[in-house]
């Protein structure tokens, strides 16, 4: 294989279809979640350490900045999980055609947006 074959992956010159947009966001959300895992572990640690720590956590969760960080992690988790379920359904042969893939991407995006809003309602 020639290693100097021409490649065009300049995103700014390519019109991304919906399937590509949900795919790149799935990647980005995955990278973000690896860092977000620290937030989830911190929540678990603070909630289980002691009764005082549990109550202190409830108080810190009323701070707007902490609410936003927790919501951002939950929103990313919701998006990544919904797109993951889409992958599993496609592995089972559902929505594998071009049209099916596009419809699946829109449906998954709609479900993710609803869950992200619900996560916001839950946190606030």
């Amino acid at each position: 294989m020639k290693s100097n074959r021409p490649v065009n992956l300049d995103i700014s010159t390519i019109k991304l279809p919906i399937t590509a947009i949900v795919s790149i966001l799935h990647r980005l959300s995955g990278v973000f979640l690896f860092a977000g895992t620290a937030v989830l572990l911190w929540l678990l640690a603070a909630s289980l350490r002691s009764e005082e720590s549990f109550i202190a956590l409830q108080e810190s969760l009323s701070a707007p900045l902490i609410k936003f960080v927790v919501w951002a992690v939950l929103a990313t988790l919701a998006y990544h999980a919904v797109m993951g379920v889409r992958h599993l359904l496609m592995d089972c042969g559902l929505g594998e055609s071009l049209k099916g893939g596009r419809i699946g991407a829109w449906v998954a995006l709609a479900v993710a947006v609803v869950l992200i809003i619900l996560a916001g309602v839950w946190v606030w």
Partner: peptide, 20 residues
């Protein structure tokens, strides 16, 4: 770096659930 973070998460998580 990723491996170090992954091991940190693992040890931290085990500490949380077996430390209570």
């Amino acid at each position: 770096i990723l491996a170090v973070v992954a091991v940190t998460y693992a040890v931290w998580g085990i500490e949380i659930i077996w430390g209570i």
